[in-house]
């Protein structure tokens, strides 16, 4: 009886979710079908969802890459960069956030205000100055301008996010640990990190995707085509004056989404285990 009632109560929820899922997924299905459309089929001045014939060659054409460099190379480059950037971002942001959220020190409020200000700077308008700095460091044509800042928590978004989460961890837990003789670093590793796992996972997912999707930094700092990333390569399909290979571009856009989706699927299940299942057990 009870189970039945619960199930009935869930029906409206399921209906809402299914409807929403359809709206969310529709454009993606359109894209998937688009990747199978031939050049003549792609646009016809009408909104056709399903291609007249499935044109698999888009995938072969796209996978062949550019200038003798196969598309797989671009995926590899993106993967290496994104993994490094993600590791750097999550580790350094958690470390810094702990400082802002848990430790009283002189100047904390000022520095935090400055952190918030940097959050409001459009990056597009700092890129010239940054380029000049990295140029003088002789870092152009290496991955350093992309990776080193990640290890320096340069995206204030992540620091702010983790500060907000760390502040929700009950203080009594720290105090108990201090009484047990833990140092501040010990509390960070033994209490804060495990208890903010959902937030850390969320950061991992975002950091990986943002780095994967980043266009402007690879454009500026990686000059050798052999080092180009997926986001750069995808733009090469598109030339407004001489015509674009939309089918191949859509095909590769979807292929290059796979790693991001895999990362999401791998990590998202850990979001579930928050403080409720872990924290109060130990």
């Amino acid at each position: 009886m009870k189970a039945n009632r619960k199930w009935l109560k869930n029906i409206p929820v399921q209906i809402v979710l299914i409807l929403l899922a359809l709206i969310m997924i529709y454009p993606l299905i359109w894209m998937l079908f688009g990747s199978f459309k031939s050049k003549a089929d792609f646009f016809q001045g009408s909104f056709n969802l399903i291609p007249s014939t499935f044109y698999w060659k888009n995938y072969a054409d796209g996978w062949a890459g550019f200038g003798g460099i196969p598309f797989g190379q671009f995926i590899k480059n993106s993967a290496v960069l994104s993994i490094l950037v993600t590791i750097g971002t999550v580790l350094s942001s958690a470390w810094v956030a702990n400082g802002f959220a848990r430790i009283e020190f002189k100047g904390r409020k000022i520095w935090f205000a400055i952190l918030m200000v940097t959050l409001m700077l459009p990056v597009q308008l700092l890129m010239v100055q940054r380029y000049i700095i990295f140029f003088h460091l002789k870092w152009i044509n290496t991955i350093l301008p992309i990776v080193v800042p990640a290890f320096l928590a340069y995206q204030p978004f992540f620091v702010f996010l983790l500060v907000q989460f760390i502040k929700t961890v009950p203080r009594e837990l720290d105090e108990a640990a201090y009484i047990d003789g833990c140092s501040k670093i010990g509390v960070f590793i033994k209490i804060i990190l495990p208890l903010t796992r959902p937030a850390l996972i969320t950061c991992t997912i975002f950091a990986f995707y943002w780095s994967w999707d980043d266009f402007i930094n690879p454009l500026l700092y990686l000059n050798k085509p052999l080092n180009y990333t997926v986001s750069l390569a995808l733009r090469l399909f598109n030339d407004p004056a001489a015509g674009s290979n939309w089918g191949a571009m859509f095909a590769m856009a979807l292929v290059s989404l796979l790693p991001v989706i895999i990362v999401f699927l791998m990590f998202q299940k850990y979001i579930v285990e928050g403080i409720s299942t872990q924290g109060l057990k130990g």
Partner: peptide
């Protein structure tokens, strides 16, 4: 400790 933590940033 405070500055040690926020040093990277």
């Amino acid at each position: 400790m405070g500055y040690l933590f926020i040093a990277p940033w």
